[in-house]
Design a protein around this nucleic acid. Structure first.
Length: 623
RNA sequence: GCGAGAGUGGCGGAACUGGCAGACGCGCCGGAUUUAGGAUCCGGUAGCCGAAAGGCUGUGGGGGUUCAAAUCCCCCCUUUCGCACCA
């Protein structure tokens, strides 16, 4: 909206103040216009003031207020009357023009129309300086509250309602009124609709040495000239003195600064500002695809092969700026035809921060845990395992020392188990497993092994839930201990029990255990590589773990022959049935209905419905 | 104020598409072993009632949908993070 200023007695052209508003529908209540202290018209107002020096002094005081305090509202809202008026284009009435310290020069036009009745900041400002408060929106008052009145209001009303005292617009609902009035303003040529984006400037030039040079040459005759393509890249000189004064350190190096204009061949100067490092960090992942290319940033063919990035992991502190910049540059590269995807990262995981005593660990708070100390006490494997186990990666992590102890305990448990079983399983023939006849305990252990492989593989892969993967491994180890206990095998060496000598252990036991132990070591190795390399070697394998394939599972082996199905009566758990895994719906229903504790709960009642979910549950609805 | 998450035992956390709430670990309790302690191994551990069998309650609060809700819908509370005098 444009508010023409009464310039009576002023030299120069007529002046209009442009304001930006999202609430044109309240314009009939605009009783004042406020300018930011930095507004370009402020100087002209000062020139035309009765005491220009005093005027400038007050403006200067506002401008000197801490910028950050002004932005966050930490300073008191203050202002002063310029002594001039401007005409409200809708009411035709003159309104005073003030300068106010809370108006932001960088947002909108740096000037606002103040509507005290319907904007809280304007309201407070008007009350402080005795400016009129004129209600132009009345809320729907079916709740019995009376109509709003400017002199009795205690706060601005910013909600919906009906326009009043608004000329030809009176009676209109606020719903749609702003858009309608914006069009009216356009047709009267006093304003126009505008989309205002809240984007911040992305300043990229810094007075630093350690940034990418900006490939521009300043020539007095030809102006700004880009460095010719064949001269790229501009390389930083290897020596630069850091004086901490004035320009970039590069400006102190004549050999770097002085050059020749590519256009007129006359003397010229290189740009000495450098790009901020986040420019590089916004597209490094493309360069990584083709890092030794000295012809171009990267070969689009190679990037097409590797990118977009499947899985991008970073800390939360990078979750905002770095990602926005990277996406910006991705779009730039797309427009240049250098990449053919819209987004640089297919999947993003932002890892949580480590907390201690409820607050983020930080050097300034002095509440950090020293990893070196923990590695000295427990080893790097323990620390890694604990961090993976204690919470899913995207969650913040509350540090506890006892939890670390638990991970250490688990690893010593694995160590003792594998070492004790080495003589039993090393060199055991596992190929025959498919044809061997196994008893229930052996089959159960095999099933656990294969089910663990399935769980860990999916947890590590698509789900990226490292903590549940560790849980699955802990369960496998627990089952292995139980199996050993039952078969009088080590590692129960802490007890009086004697392990069976290796050569007396039946071949099927050795095979089943061997399969389980090797899968365990392989699956644990991403978490605790040092320990697992050692164990792998002791199991009789040479060559290291990196060359060994991830274990695979057999769905048939992982499948249980018997399953436990819960039986509910009216949604409450009343029994558990152990049935064959391939039980038919009909058999399951019959088994559920005839189960004794189910019958006590259905006795004397009518079975209205039986919900049977195969392999999952039976729910009997009685009335 | 706006936006995005989160809320489950004493604690960290599980629960994949609505289908047995509390996997796994910590802590705690009991047992075995041990001169003792520690370590180790085995068992128990949501709350309430009960000697037990068992019963009732329970995923921040209140409603709703459903045979069935931690999970879906509506309202509210608390909390974390980001943005914020943005007109």
């Amino acid at each position: 909206m444009r508010f023409p200023v009464d310039t009576t007695g002023w030299a120069g052209d007529p002046v209009e103040i442009e304001v930006f508003t999202t609430r044109v529908d309240t314009i009939f209540g605009a009783t004042c216009v406020l300018l930011a202290p930095e507004h370009t018209l402020v100087d002209r107002f000062a020139d035309g003031a009765t005491d220009p020096e005093a005027f400038r002094g007050r403006v200067q005081r506002f401008r000197a207020q801490d910028r950050n305090d002004r932005l966050t509202g930490a300073v008191e809202k203050e202002g002063f009357d310029t002594g001039r008026t401007a005409v409200n284009p809708f009411t035709g009435r003159p309104v005073p023009v003030w300068i106010a310290n809370f108006v932001l020069a960088e947002y909108g036009t740096g000037a606002v129309m103040a509507v005290p009745a319907h904007d809280q900041r304007d309201f407070e400002f008007a009350r402080k300086y005795g400016l009129p408060v004129e209600v132009v929106i009345q809320p729907e008052t079916d709740a019995g509250a009376g109509p709003l009145h400017g002199s009795t209001m205690e706060a601005a009303y910013a909600g919906p309602g009906t326009l009043v005292h608004s000329g030809e617009f009176t009676g209109r609902s606020t719903d749609g009124a702003a858009a309608f009035m914006a069009r009216a303003a356009a047709s009267r040529d006093v304003g126009r609709p505008k989309v205002q984006f809240r984007l911040k400037d992305w300043g990229i030039s810094r007075q630093r040495y350690w940034g990418t040079p900006i490939p521009i040459i300043h020539c007095d005759a030809c102006g700004l000239q880009p460095v010719p393509y064949e001269d790229l890249p501009v390389e930083l000189p290897t020596v630069a003195e850091f004086t901490g004064l004035g320009d970039s350190p590069l400006a102190q190096i004549p050999e770097f600064v002085n050059t020749v204009c590519p256009s007129c061949q006359g003397p010229a100067r290189r740009e000495t500002d450098t790009m901020d490092t986040f420019v590089d960090s916004s597209w490094y992942f493309y360069r990584y695809c083709d890092a030794s290319n000295d012809e171009q940033a990267f070969d689009p063919e190679k990037v097409r092969y590797w990118a977009p990035i499947d899985f991008y992991i970073g800390g939360v502190e990078h979750a905002i700026l770095h990602l926005i910049y990277s996406r910006f540059l991705c779009r730039v590269f797309k427009d240049l035809g250098m990449v053919d995807h819209d987004e640089p990262f297919t999947r993003l995981l932002t890892q949580g921060m480590v907390l201690r005593d409820g607050t983020v660990m930080s050097k300034s708070k002095g509440n950090v845990v020293d990893p070196d100390q923990m590695i000295a006490s427990y080893g790097a494997d323990t620390l890694r395992l604990y961090e993976m186990f204690v919470a899913p990666p995207e969650k913040e992590l509350e540090w506890t020392d006892s939890g670390l102890e638990g991970s250490f305990r688990f690893l010593t448990r694995v160590w003792r188990l594998v070492i004790a079983l080495c003589p039993v399983v090393a060199g055991a023939a596992q190929d025959g497993l498919g044809t061997m006849t196994l008893d229930d305990a052996h089959r159960a252990l095999r099933r656990k092994t294969h089910e663990s492989i399935r769980r860990v593989s999916t947890d590590l892969g698509p789900r990226a839930h490292l903590n549940t993967a560790v849980s699955a491994l802990m369960e496998l180890v627990n089952d292995l201990y139980a199996f050993c206990e039952r078969h009088a095998l080590a590692p129960h060496t802490g007890t009086a029990r004697q392990g069976t000598p290796a050569d007396q252990v039946p071949p099927e036991t050795r095979a089943v255990l061997g399969e389980a132990i090797e899968a365990l070591v392989l699956m644990l190795s991403p978490f605790t590589p040092h320990l697992c390399e050692e164990l792998w070697e002791r199991l009789g394998h040479a060559g290291g773990l990196v060359t060994v394939a991830w274990p695979t599972f057999d769905t048939e082996v992982a499948r249980a022959d018997e399953i436990v199905v819960p039986v509910q009566v009216n949604g409450k758990l009343r029994a558990r049935l152990t049935v064959p895994a391939d039980v038919s719906e009909e058999d399951l229903r019959t088994a559920a209905l005839t189960e004794s504790s189910v019958q006590t709960h259905t006795a004397g009642k009518t079975v209205a419905r039986v919900v049977v979910v195969r392999r999952r549950l039976v729910n009997i609805v009685v009335t």
